[in-house]
Design a protein around this nucleic acid. Structure first.
Lengths: 138, 138
DNA sequence: TTAATATCCTACTAATTTAGTAGGGAAAAT
DNA sequence: ATTTTCCCTACTAAATTAGTAGGATATTAA
């Protein structure tokens, strides 16, 4: 399951996607509109900024905004930044790989099933973007 | 990600699958062969028994064994028992549904994407069984 | 140059979940 | 009756999650 933090991130990004091209949006606006605890949201948006998904401006007229079009930001990307691996086991993760002890990876049946599962999941999450989320909610 | 407990469960069940039809297997054997902490494994196998996946026999000649053929036990079933929901968000879970607050489910774009993702994941995990795991590792 | 606005940064905390461990109880076989 | 083996309750340590607190820093504008 995705953490609450990740769900907050997705909701915030959706809001920023809806306001794409309209200039910076205040954290406090997102917090109010999407009912996300303000200070927690600060951390989340900052994390997304460091991961190059968002840009920000300080001072009056400032706020956060998407660095690229909502069409360019996949759900997989967001989930990886905020939630971590998408695969069900680390030894199958593309971005967070960890070797599993006591297991010959070439002949591990569990690993093979988890690889197939990962591919099926990624096929969706890599393709679907914030734009799809926004379009679907219209 | 699956918990360590769930990965232990899958490994133990695979072992029991390999010994299907050969009578009860000792916890201590599984623990040794699959390198799973014995007392922890006890809890896991008991949970699987309560969920009707395993049967057990006490006393000499006793142990655990699969209640049905490895072909009949899907990975989805095991994961749900030990790990919980397979869906990425509760409002999309078939077996562990929870309403999400502040969200009009009919018009939530995130929810729709998560539904598609769940379906893709389940298509694999409902179909693949312990038998597939065993066959793949041969 | 000062005040106001808004993000940025570090650190802390409470609650929950995970990953076990401990110790005996109960049933079955011999 | 003794041994074997699973069964059950409860406890604990460590990690993760979900925040909160408080000020530092950058920008704008009077």
């Amino acid at each position: 399951m995705l953490s609450k933090k990740t769900r907050y991130a997705l909701r915030a990004l959706t809001y920023l996607g809806e306001n794409y091209g309209k200039g910076p949006v205040l954290i406090s606006d997102i917090s109010r509109e999407k009912k996300i605890p303000l200070k927690f949201l600060e951390n989340i948006l900052n994390e997304l900024k460091k991961a190059d998904v968002l840009e920000s401006k300080k001072g009056k007229g400032g706020g956060y905004f998407l660095k690229a079009s909502p069409k360019k930001i996949s759900l997989a990307k967001v989930i990886r930044i905020v939630n971590g691996p998408i695969a069900l086991v680390p030894c199958v993760s593309l971005n967070f790989y960890e070797k599993c002890e006591d297991c010959d990876e070439k002949h591990c049946g569990i690993r093979q099933m988890m690889t197939i599962t990962r591919d099926a999941t990624l096929k969706i999450l890599e393709k679907k973007t914030l734009a799809d989320v926004i379009f679907a909610s219209a």
